[in-house]
Design a protein around this nucleic acid. Sequence first.
DNA 1: TTCATTGATTAGGTATACCTAACTGTAATA
DNA 2: TATTACAGTTAGGTATACCTAATCAATGAA
Lengths: 216, 216
Amino acid sequence: MEADTPRTEEYLESIYKLQQEHRPVTTSSLAEHLKLSAPSVSEMVKKLEGKGLLSHTEKGVCLTEEGKSIAKKVIRRHRLSERLLTDILGFKWDEVHEEACRLEHAISPEMEDRIAESLGNPKTCPHGHPIPDKDGVLVKEKVRPLSELKASGKGVIVNVFEEDPNMLKYLASLGLIPGVCVRVEEVAPFGGPLIVCVSGSRYALGREVASKIKVK
Amino acid sequence: MEADTPRTEEYLESIYKLQQEHRPVTTSSLAEHLKLSAPSVSEMVKKLEGKGLLSHTEKGVCLTEEGKSIAKKVIRRHRLSERLLTDILGFKWDEVHEEACRLEHAISPEMEDRIAESLGNPKTCPHGHPIPDKDGVLVKEKVRPLSELKASGKGVIVNVFEEDPNMLKYLASLGLIPGVCVRVEEVAPFGGPLIVCVSGSRYALGREVASKIKVK
DNA sequence: TTCATTGATTAGGTATACCTAACTGTAATA
DNA sequence: TATTACAGTTAGGTATACCTAATCAATGAA
């Protein structure tokens, strides 16, 4: 309810995302994620703790309810922006992240509502991640990484934990986008690639890449 | 060419607009327009002068070609944002100014292009002001204030120099929007109101208000 | 001519958010 | 046990952009 700067939003969003990805939320991981120095993050984290938006213990950084609520609002605006960009303005899914990173701090609640309405209240962003609803309710599907499937295992792509435009372009070129069914033909041993079948075509996919693709 | 902050954009835009409205562009008028203290503006103006974006003489503040070019880009983004808000997201013309003030600093050249394209390269914002093209070319129509018309004079509304939502709502309620034909029935003496006829209805309009409505 | 008004600037200070360099404290290892 | 590694913080400093209070300079009125 206080004056909420773009930077504050940025930090809360990053923390929330790291947490969601089950990655450690330490000042250093945050610094890396935000591309800032450790002391800068340390200082800011202290400030945000003072504002009651998070707590910082030995175990790491943890958002309070208020912090989580703000983070989810920012994520809602981010993902709605991405949908606006793809569905209405014709951007590709690899072109929207950066743009949405700026829009998420510029959009009013009214605009947020209008975008959602105009798009028929979409449930996910173009990368398949759920859009929190107005009250911060976020429906997470039970998924697992494609890399965990065994040979002849099948799954439908739910979302893709990737922001790098080049990687996204690559995935789209193989048809690896949310909603698509993938079958694993073969899993090479010693951490080797997966041979997957997508809409009739066969591709070799690195483990690293496959681990970012979540299926159900 | 340099790193261009939102504040810089804000200043250049304000200067450009004051100039366009033939209002004095002094540090104090700028301070009033931007709702900042005089010394703040004085300081910032000096910085912008140092960056070659404007010159400051006894006659006032004057944008350089580079300053003008940036200002027009910001105005283009502002007006395209307004059109996006009204034409695609369903906002009323009185709801878009504030929102566009934030969006104009968050929009990339790519998004600017996409908006323009999606809207069929609109020539004006919802208030009738011209949208500069990609190269900064801005077509200004020859207009005069409605308040200058004599009794039985007629004109078509080109644009409205007004940002206040309440005033805009009021004007829209009378049908006083760009493209509409207005006839002045009567002009009360001693700076009194104009009696105007708009699409069959008759209204009394204060001079102050009428002066903000530009007709051709 | 002197005074008041207005415009602009100087001086000094604040908040935000970033930085590097140096130090601390803990935990895993040689 | 001593060492190295790493996380985290402290100390000290920067840039941006804002503020109030006080000063200066020109202009028009008493």
